[in-house]
Design a protein around this nucleic acid. Structure first.
Length: 597
RNA sequence: GAUUAUGUAGCUCAGCAGGUAGAGCACAUCCCUUUUAAGGAUGGGGUCCUGGGUUCGAAUCCCAGCAUGAUCACCA
């Protein structure tokens, strides 16, 4: 960063100018200006606010807090670094809360310990005046317990490692009650780094997220399955009924789609001879955003040869049980109002039975028109474009889904809504499919994979008909995938699980935005500004620039559109109100500037 | 996409039968050698989201827009 940024001339006589509003930068608050001033003073005092050399850290705050009570002889010589989160200055002694990656620990800083001899300027000026909450420091010292009983570090040496120029929101907590919490969702998500610094628990959620993925990976690897990567940019977005994002490849001059699923590629790899392949993948769907949907989201899909969906059910519940145990040490997990028991085995209910149970209608053997009639009776909107499978899905979604709070496998879906799934071995109207529901939401989806290439082609063609009826989520025909199947795919079972949702359940988060570091947001609006130099180029005096900006004119083009008389009044009003020691504006001068634009 | 709520200081929020913009924390100055959502005193800090309208006068009322949340629709 260029040093000139900090040597803004109008900062030199700071206290005086600070009172004169018209010199204050539009985008910097008073507190930010103070910090830039401190930064300059540090540099003048020969202290590099951003030193290059490493700082030797030999302990983390959490280790001290955990081990010191057991043995007070420990930690006679600690070296620790972190961010200043609070400061209590009591004359010649101060208390600082230092936050490192593992938590917070109190520092006790005594003037005569950190200063050499009679010269107290390091404490009185550098520490007290030029350092702020948010600065990153490194300290050495020894651990002791204060009279109040708090484990603290008695600091013998203190070094500034990074100066913070923006004030942090100060969140305080007493007896579990938060004060001044940094809670605005927009700011939390847009500035996740601030959220992570000041809000306890945010970091924990994301650490858990990583642990969940690690636990699953261990489970798959222990069985010898191979983690693979498949294309994100796809010419045909297959494997799921969803609206894709579309992009364009210049060199090939073709449209490419961001994947909505990785199913078809993973199955090609089973054709290629792997026993089991899995992928943690970002998928992209161009659909609505809400508490449970983000345009990009993470899915884990796994395909295992020579297995069926019954095997996969056992496999899935074992995997989830392991994740819960690895994360919480128990299979019982609190989610909102509910305690969810992830102990195997999970309940298993057929879709037909689920609908029978929650609606009273037995739809087995019904044709499309009969089911449409059931929808009408149940007051479920059914559009003409909906086929039999979609209609059944609507009924299930409207009347059944929400009842499955405890982990439940819904099995044996109608053939129309599962075009990539093998027909049921006992009933050709059904498929060998299950979805796992938790807390009324779909969490995982699995099949005995369809490996009959002729059947698969027909199913795709059914989808094509749906598409012609207006279902814009119906699948495309992937000819290469069909070709792969024609070479022969072993009987295979595949399963996909939404990682974001799993993380939500496992961390008691009720919004997907809380388990994504950077959830999708509308872009921040940028304020367009004409530079001071451009204003001066048309003859505007430097001291009038700020008043003009205050009057709401940040660009020359906006100034050109201005009502001159109103602007004239506003500017002189501003001058009078702020008692600015500058010549009054005259109308001719103003007109002259504007004529030059 | 629809409905609805919210948008005031760095943070959390008051204020609104229309009449000079408030609090706590943060910040600044001063005092204080061990405090615990930090002790005392003093002080600075606001395009009251934006643009229109009504009005002598709008943070406050009306309309439109923008942003965010919630609910619904779509979906995982």
């Amino acid at each position: 960063m260029s040093a000139s940024l900090f040597r803004i001339s109008h900062l030199t006589d700071f206290p005086y100018l600070c009172k004169k509003k018209y010199f204050m930068s539009l985008e910097l608050s008073e507190q930010e200006l103070f910090r830039r001033k401190s930064l300059e003073e540090l540099q003048n005092a020969g202290i590099n606010p951003y030193p290059a050399d490493l700082f030797e850290v030999n302990v983390k705050s959490s280790e001290i807090l955990a081990n010191y009570p057991k043995d007070n002889n420990l930690y006679k010589n600690v070296s620790i670094a972190g961010r200043i989160m609070s400061r209590r200055i009591m004359g010649a002694a101060s208390f600082v809360e230092l936050q490192d990656s593992t938590g917070r620990i109190q520092l006790y800083i005594k003037r005569d310990d950190i200063c050499q001899g009679e010269d107290t300027s390091f404490y009185n000026n550098v520490f007290k005046k030029m350092m702020d909450i948010g600065d990153i420091i490194g300290v050495t010292g020894f651990v002791f317990t204060t009279q109040m009983g708090e484990i603290s570090i008695h600091v013998s040496d203190l070094k500034l490692l990074s100066k913070s120029l923006k004030p942090l929101p100060i969140v305080k907590e007493k007896d579990g009650v938060l004060f001044d919490a940094f809670s605005d969702p927009e700011q939390r998500y847009r500035q996740r780094y601030v959220d992570l610094i000041v809000n306890e628990g945010v970091k924990e959620t994301f650490i858990k997220r990583t642990k969940i993925v690690q636990s699953m990976r261990e489970f798959f690897n222990s069985k010898g399955y191979l983690e693979v990567e498949t294309p994100i940019l796809q010419a045909i977005p297959g494997g799921a009924a969803a609206r894709p994002f579309i992009t364009h490849h210049n060199a090939l001059n073709i449209p490419l789609y961001l994947r909505v699923a990785n199913e078809l590629y993973l199955k090609r790899l089973i054709v290629g001879g792997f026993d089991g392949v899995y992928e943690f993948s970002k998928d992209f769907r161009n659909e609505g955003m809400d508490r449970t949907h983000n345009p990009e989201f993470t899915v884990m899909e796994i395909y295992v040869a020579y297995k069926d969906y019954k095997w996969m059910m056992d496999f899935t519940e074992q995997m989830i049980e392991k994740v819960a145990k690895d994360l919480h040490g128990t299979t019982m997990v609190r989610f909102g109002e509910n305690d969810i028991e992830f102990k195997t085995p999970f309940a298993r209910v057929t879709m037909i039975d689920a609908i029978k149970e929650h609606t009273g209608f037995d739809i087995s053997g019904m044709d499309e028109d009969q089911i449409r009639e059931v929808c009408t009776k149940l007051h479920i909107e059914a559009e003409p474009s909906m086929g039999k499978g979609k209609l059944i899905d609507e009924i299930f979604g409207a009347k059944c889904e929400q009842h499955y709070i405890q982990p439940t496998f819904i099995i044996d879906y109608p053939v129309e809504m599962s075009p990539l799934c093998k027909k049921h071995r006992l009933n050709p109207e059904l498929t060998e499919r299950f979805e796992l529901f938790v807390n009324g939401k779909e969490l995982a989806n699995a099949y005995s994979e369809l490996n009959d290439p002729i059947d698969q082609r027909e199913r795709f063609q059914e989808q094509l008909k749906l598409s012609e009826k207006g279902d814009d989520e119906a699948m495309f025909i992937d000819q290469d995938f069909l070709r792969a199947l024609e070479y022969g795919m072993p009987p295979t079972s595949g399963m996909g699980i939404g990682i974001d949702r799993l993380v939500m359940f496992m961390t008691n988060s009720n919004s997907i935005q809380d388990v994504l570091f950077f959830p999708q947001m509308r872009p921040e609006k940028k304020v367009v500004q004409t530079s001071d130099e451009d204003f001066m180029a048309i003859g505007v005096h430097e001291y009038w620039i700020q008043p003009i900006r205050k009057a709401g004119f940040n660009t020359l083009s906006a100034l050109k559109e201005a009502n001159i008389n109103k602007l004239f009044n506003d500017l002189n009003g501003f001058r009078k109100k702020n008692k600015l020691d500058i010549p009054a504006m005259n109308l001719g001068e103003l007109t002259d500037w504007i004529s030059k634009i």
